[in-house]
């Protein structure tokens, strides 16, 4: 890996070099009722809009790579004949400017299922292969447990990663194109003091984590506690609304629906991101529901993320971004659910 350092004033130049492309980044979305600033990923049209010091975004990047609703194919029908037209819905490369480590790790995890060896998903791959990613260091928030999930730093899956050293940025460079971008601005190789400062920043960040999840033996505990009463308690609170899955950067479950156009000569197949918390997720034709209760479904979500995915890929399908807990109106948070399943006192369930 190559490293470079550049002055903070140069950031705008870096932006300008890439501004010929579409740029997505963290932008302000006003404040909540407690005057806390809100951010979300959106298209950026002006450097001033880019909020690299953002706390966290409300939604994940999924809107751009795994849209809530996507047409997989359309059909043209003649009398007894039909044609299928597949469109991957990717038309342009997009620069993602300012992703936190957790969100880049989330993409890397999604790759394992959606762009792995078995039936790689072309709709995802088409968008994923047209991403140019500039990561940026973050400040741990009270709800962040990425460190527990091993997702607080990222080793691959980006083109460039920036760490704020105070008056300059420390850039980790992973792609030739990122290197090319930096050649257009004033930057230099980091010296010993900057190496030192870079490591210090990482250490300072580590100290600021206040939220933790004990993942020791979690896969076994989830098997052992499959019938535990705590699941029912959380199930009673759960609204079965799918909000957690919608804001989650790694939830990819979906449903497919086919519809005929009003003219009866065209039809389309659409996929909708779904959530395993929704009541009909595991319903089969004929009406039998394998997970009829909200606690069955809530438990399944944890089981998939923290056990099933670990079994398949040796890592959890959770990056610890805390979005689900923040967005849940019923205050169901991952750290509390897992603590309760482990039988720990102190969760206020």
């Amino acid at each position: 890996m190559l490293f470079r350092v550049f002055s903070k004033n140069e950031l705008k130049n870096l932006y300008d070099i890439l501004a010929v492309n579409h740029i997505v980044g963290p932008v302000s979305k006003g404040c909540n009722k407690n005057s806390t600033a809100l951010y979300d990923f959106d298209f950026v049209y002006d450097f001033e809009e880019l909020q690299l010091e953002y706390s966290a975004t409300i939604h994940s990047l999924k809107r751009f790579i795994l849209p809530a609703k996507e047409t997989l194919c359309s059909f043209t029908l003649q009398k007894n004949n039909w044609q299928k037209h597949v469109e991957l819905n990717a038309y342009k490369p997009i620069v993602y400017f300012g992703l936190h480590a957790c969100d880049i790790n989330a993409l890397n995890k999604l790759d394992k299922v959606l762009a792995g060896k078995i039936y790689p998903d072309p709709y995802y791959a088409a968008k994923r292969n047209n991403m140019f990613i500039i990561g940026v260091g973050c400040t741990p928030q009270p709800f962040c447990f990425c460190h527990s999930m091993g997702a607080d730093s990222v080793l691959h899956g980006f083109d460039m990663f920036l760490t704020d050293l105070g008056d300059s940025y420390f850039a980790e460079i992973l792609s030739a194109r990122a290197f090319e971008c930096l050649s257009g601005i004033t930057c230099r190789e980091p010296g010993k003091s900057e190496h030192q400062r870079f490591l210090e920043v990482a250490q300072e960040k580590m100290k600021r984590f206040t939220c933790h999840v004990d993942t020791t033996d979690l896969t076994k505990i989830l098997d052992l506690e499959f019938q535990a009463d705590v699941w029912r308690e959380w199930g009673e609170k759960c609204l079965s609304c799918g909000t957690c899955a919608n804001v989650c950067p790694t939830c990819y479950c979906y449903g497919v629906e086919e519809n005929v156009d009003l003219d009866m000569r065209h039809a389309a197949k659409t996929r909708h991101l779904y959530s395993c918390n929704l009541i009909d997720f595991a319903e089969v034709a004929g009406g039998h529901n394998f997970r009829p209760h909200s606690h069955d479904r809530l438990k399944y979500r944890y089981y998939h993320k923290h056990r099933g995915f670990v079994e398949a890929f040796e890592e959890s399908l959770c990056v610890g971004c805390g979005r689900c807990g923040n967005a849940c109106l019923a205050n169901i948070t991952v750290p509390e659910v897992i603590a309760s399943v482990r039988g720990k006192e102190g969760y206020h369930g």
């Binding site: 959606l114 039936y119 479950c253 497919v256 779904y274």
Partner: peptide, 16 residues
Amino acid sequence: RMHCGRGKCCRCNIGS
């Protein structure tokens, strides 16, 4: 129930 048949949609998952 399956929506994809290709190990993606999660609808057919038993446990995980």
